[in-house]
Simulated scan of single mutants.
Amino acid sequence: MLIEEARLPPGLRVYAIGDIHGRVDLLDQLHGLIEADLAPASEYGAPEKTVIVYLGDYIDRGPDSHAVIERLTRPRFPGVETVTLLGNHEAMLLEFLEAPYGAALWLANGGDATLRSYKVKIPGSFDEFLLTQRTLLGVLPRHHKQFLLGLPVQVQYGDYLFVHAGIKPGLPLDRQSREHMIWIRGAFLDSESDHGMIVVHGHTIVHEVEWRPNRIGVDTGAYTTGRLTALVLDGAERRLLHT
């Protein structure tokens, strides 16, 4: 399937939001833009059904991971369905909560910012990893942990597949692994294969939304650029909202 052929069922609008990475300020701004976009008096009006898909990586790097998770556990839009997908950064945090001595990768990729947002001391050595894990487990709100544990890896609407990172080309969807969908880069990004659906993803930063015949990349690097993007899908139409 080519991008120009893809569409959603009539009456459905989807907002797909790229990687937030602790920028609750930008998330609040983008939610405001969505709210205005959904207003009956807006240019586009309110559809019969609306879904907001968050593409993962809510935490790390930026300063307010705690606040982002809190926002996402308390949906802002009455009557609007929300889907929060698993990103590789949430997966790294969950792995840290299970096995603290594997924390080096997470901390090297922005996990220190998440610890600060929960007011947990950054471990200064390998020997402190276990204490840091226990401290984080003690301060992590129960509803935050339940949220993290319940994140799905993919969702489909119409001719679109939504995942955090992408899929392994040539492999049927029911055989894709969790690791493929939250970590893959090169093989997916370079592929010109027809995946059968248009894949909407984040994970890999682009200066502008990347429109390819078989995929759309919407991670515009919010934590460093100040630009958080939502892809708006409505029937055969595609447009953007961004901070």
Rank of each mutant, 00 (worst) to 15 (best):
M1N: 06
L2F: 13
E5T: 09
G11Y: 02
G11P: 01
Y15I: 08
A16G: 05
G18H: 00
H21F: 03
H21M: 08
L26S: 08
Q29H: 11
L38A: 11
Y44I: 07
P47W: 10
E48I: 04
E48P: 05
V51H: 02
L55K: 01
Y58F: 09
I59L: 12
D60G: 10
S65A: 13
H66N: 10
V68Q: 01
F77Y: 09
P78S: 03
T82F: 00
A91I: 12
P100F: 07
P100M: 02
L105Y: 15
G111A: 08
D112K: 13
L115M: 11
R116I: 12
D127S: 15
F129G: 08
L130C: 12
T132Q: 06
L137P: 00
V139C: 05
P141A: 04
R142L: 07
L149Q: 14
L149N: 13
V153C: 09
V155K: 07
G158W: 08
D159H: 15
L161Q: 12
F162K: 07
G170I: 08
Q176P: 09
I184G: 00
S193P: 01
M197Q: 12
V200G: 03
H201G: 01
H201C: 06
H203D: 07
H203M: 05
H203C: 10
R212C: 14
I216Q: 03
G217Q: 03
V218I: 15
G226P: 06
E237N: 15
R239Q: 11
H242I: 09
T243Q: 05
